[in-house]
Design a binder for these strands. Structure first.
Lengths: 151, 151
DNA sequence: TGTAAGTAGTACGATAACGTATTATATAAT
DNA sequence: ATTATATAATACGTTATCGTACTACTTACA
């Protein structure tokens, strides 16, 4: 490996991250029913892992997407009965997003469908290496998060 | 950190990769002229870093995107005069994609615009950590690549 | 209070991504 | 040679994503 400037190193890293993200996205989406996207699943996952009852705007910020994109994702999820949008008693302008029982079941089934894929990868790749890289990605994520423009 | 199964480790890793990819995508796209996407820049970058003169299908495979998506990206790049599509003398069905001088200049300018961002990150994050994680991502990428369905 | 400024959500329009079907050419089988 | 099969690219339609503009409501302040 020839000498590389730090800038090149980061650039190469982000390039590789982009490719891995794309490949893993395809892997995950293959396990979702028909036309569902990873974005939609990720929202459901967030509502369970983190918290539901927050506003659409909170979710948009959590995922770093425009609020119009989140409106659309939530509309799709609501149309399928996977989330419920309720008025926000504390603020007449906004709503609260709740996951439904169907939503929980959907997420559970999707997660279960992905386990074999993860296991297949784990069978060929040392989880210790991944575990070692995780905090690097996590720290970098937080740095990028702090650097972003506030919206 | 509680005990985690290898499956969970990989799942968490892919989640983090997805977030970092999204944040860095936003960072890069902010440095591209008006309506250009990272996909388009990445194609230009590939034509220079790897090789031009290959077919659209070759590029689609390299980026793991459907060939129809690549057709669209190339059409946009061609419309802006950044690539040139020529008939393939060896196969009447296909074409060859060449980057133009304008395309090289465009890529060069975009790269230059991104260097300060990379430097700003490098100032707050040890490049050694990134360099250490790079081969892990790279190996994982190749594994995912081998696991994908051939199309 | 009442007015100005700010914020949450969405309607609308544009482009990107992608799946399906079609056309043109190439390759294989007979 | 002729026919069947496979492949490269693209036309077309659908959905995701996102920017702009608008409405409804809230907060700040005078």
């Amino acid at each position: 490996m020839p000498d590389r400037t730090p800038e090149d190193t980061f650039f190469a890293f982000f390039t590789e991250v982009g490719i891995v993200a794309q490949l893993s996205r395809a892997l995950f989406e293959a396990r979702l029913p028909d036309g569902f996207t990873l974005s939609q699943f990720t929202v459901l996952n967030h509502l369970i892992r983190v918290k539901d009852g927050r506003t659409p705007l909170d979710l948009a910020r959590a995922f770093q997407v425009p609020k119009t994109s989140m409106t659309h994702s939530l509309a799709v999820l609501e149309r399928h009965g996977l989330v419920r949008l309720a008025p926000n008693a504390r603020d007449g302008r906004s709503k609260c997003v709740w996951i439904t029982e169907d939503g929980r079941a959907f997420r559970q089934a999707a997660m279960a469908g992905m386990v074999p894929d993860m296991a297949a990868i784990a069978a060929q790749f040392a989880a210790e290496r991944i575990a070692g890289a995780l905090p690097i990605l996590s720290d970098l994520r937080h740095l990028l998060d702090r650097m972003r423009d506030p919206d």
